[in-house]
Amino acid sequence: MLDLAFSVRDLARTRFALSPLWEVVASVRVLKHPAEHSLYRPWSDEAGRRLAASGLDWGLLADLIPQPPLAIPVFIAPPPTTPVADLGLELAVLRSTPPDRVRSGLSGQRAPRSERIERLRSDPRRGLAELADVVEAYWDIALAPYWPRMRSLLEGDVLHRARLFAEYGAQQLLNDLGPGVTWDADTLYVGHHYARGSRQLGGRGLLLVPSVFVWPRVFSVITANWQPTLRYPPRGVATLWERRSSLPQALASVIGRSRARLLAELDMPASTSDLARRTAITAGGVSQHLAALRAAGLVEAHRSGRYVFYARTEAAEVLLTAADARCGEVKVPRSD
Results as ranks from 00 to 15, higher is better:
Val181Leu: 14
Leu262Met: 12
Tyr232Thr: 02
Ile222Ala: 03
Leu11Phe: 09
Trp226Ala: 11
Phe219Ile: 01
Gly203Asn: 14
Ile76Cys: 03
Glu36Pro: 10
Leu154Ala: 07
Ser104Gln: 07
Leu51Met: 05
Glu90Ala: 15
Met268Thr: 10
Arg119Tyr: 08
Val24Cys: 15
Ala170Thr: 00
Met268Val: 08
Ile281Gly: 03
Glu90Met: 15
Gly108Ser: 03
Val93Trp: 10
Thr187Tyr: 04
Pro99Met: 02
Thr14Tyr: 09
Glu242Phe: 13
Trp183Cys: 07
Asp267Ala: 08
Ile65Ser: 05
Val84Cys: 10
Gly105Thr: 05
Gly178Cys: 04
Arg95Val: 09
Pro73Ser: 06
Phe6Trp: 01
Leu290Arg: 00
Ala35Leu: 15
Val308Lys: 05
Ala17Leu: 10
Pro248Ser: 01
Ala47Trp: 07
Arg277Thr: 13
Asp324Gly: 09
Asp157Gly: 08
Ser38Thr: 07
Arg326Phe: 15
Ala280Met: 03
Ala144Cys: 11
Ser104Tyr: 06
Pro112Ile: 05
Asp133Phe: 09
Leu290Ala: 03
Ser287Pro: 00
Ala129Trp: 01
Ser44Gln: 11
Ala35His: 12
Phe16Glu: 11
Ser104Gly: 06
Arg126Gly: 12
Phe213Ser: 09
Ala17Lys: 01
Pro34His: 07
Arg126Val: 08
Leu18Asn: 03
Asp123Asn: 14
Ala166Gln: 05
Arg126Ala: 06
Leu2Asp: 01
Gly105Cys: 10
Glu23Leu: 06
Val332Lys: 13
Asp10Leu: 02
Arg41Tyr: 12
Ser246Gln: 04
Trp147Val: 00
Asn175Val: 00
Glu90Lys: 10
Ala85Arg: 05
Ser335Val: 11
His160Phe: 11
Glu329Cys: 13
Ala276Trp: 04
Pro228Val: 01
Val8Ile: 06
Leu319Cys: 11
Ala26Met: 08
Leu319Glu: 08
Ala291Glu: 03
Phe165Ala: 07
Arg204Asp: 09
Asp176Pro: 01
Phe165Gly: 03
Ile65Trp: 04
